[in-house]
């Protein structure tokens, strides 16, 4: 632990790319990581990426887990969903089925994490393919609104909105970590050492209270996003 001191100081945000196969999760990741667009399709099993970034003038690390889109059994995703702090749920604008499947991914994430406030973004990729579009902006936005999350359309090919979604996701993760830390701090001060369970209790109550708060915030963010997209 001591030897890791250097890195521990640097916040590391763990993001997970989820969504059906061939929607462009890896393409988005590679575009973000290396600024490259990789055209050939090679189904991912699971790949881990890490990058040092400056977010709002603050240095941090982002750890991206790029996952397989077409496993037979969703249960094997449980484990890495547990490791995720923010989810970029992707579908292809040219594939209505992939849009429909986002619901399954979301359900599983919520189930595994047992937490409705996990930073989550709905991402419609391949926005450059105007002609073969199957999912309308309104449709997808309605879905996002129902989920109370933001919706962004991206293109891994043209890099449109790619940095935007990753940066936004990191901000959401960072914000969430801050409030969690503050809460822990308050709880620790109030409950003392003995009340570990009650502190956790407190936390969950706060989380419930904070949920409304967060939702309010996420709506605010959504508005911000609308501006970006429109």
């Amino acid at each position: 632990m001591v030897k890791r001191g250097g890195r521990a100081e640097l916040a590391c945000h763990k993001l997970i790319m989820v969504g059906s196969g061939a929607v462009g999760k890896s393409a988005l990741t590679l575009q973000y990581m290396y600024g490259e667009f990789v055209e050939e399709y090679d189904p991912t099993k699971a790949d881990s990426y890490r990058k040092k970034v400056v977010l709002d003038g603050e240095e941090c690390q982002v750890d991206i887990l790029d996952t397989a889109g077409q496993e037979e059994y969703s249960a094997i995703r449980d484990n890495y969903y547990r490791s995720g702090e923010g989810f970029l749920c992707c579908f292809s604008l040219t594939d209505a089925a992939s849009f429909a499947e986002t619901a399954e991914f979301r359900d599983q994430i919520l189930r595994v994490l047992g937490d409705n406030n996990t930073p989550f973004l709905l991402i419609g990729n391949k926005s450059d393919c105007v002609d073969s579009r199957q999912v309308s902006y309104e449709e997808a936005r309605a879905q996002a609104e129902a989920w109370q999350c933001a919706y962004v359309e991206t293109s891994a090919k043209t890099a449109e909105n790619v940095n935007v979604v990753f940066d936004q996701m990191m901000r959401m993760v960072r914000e969430r970590k801050r409030t969690a830390r503050d809460r822990r701090g308050e709880a620790g001060a109030a409950g003392g050492a003995g009340g570990h369970a009650s502190a956790a209790d407190d936390g969950s109550k706060n989380a419930a209270g904070g949920r409304r708060d967060d939702q309010g915030k996420s709506r605010g963010q959504k508005k911000g996003f609308k501006c970006v997209i429109l």
């Binding site: 890791r4 763990k14 099993k45 699971a46 790949d47 881990s48 990426y49 890490r50 750890d63 991206i64 887990l65 996952t67 397989a68 496993e71 037979e72 059994y73 094997i76 484990n79 890495y80 490791s83």
Partner: peptide
């Protein structure tokens, strides 16, 4: 333990292997 991301990748692989 040093590489969180890799842990997920490896475990994912092992799960798949068992299945």
């Amino acid at each position: 333990s040093d590489e969180d991301g890799l842990l997920q990748v490896v475990w994912h692989g092992i799960q798949e292997e068992f299945i």
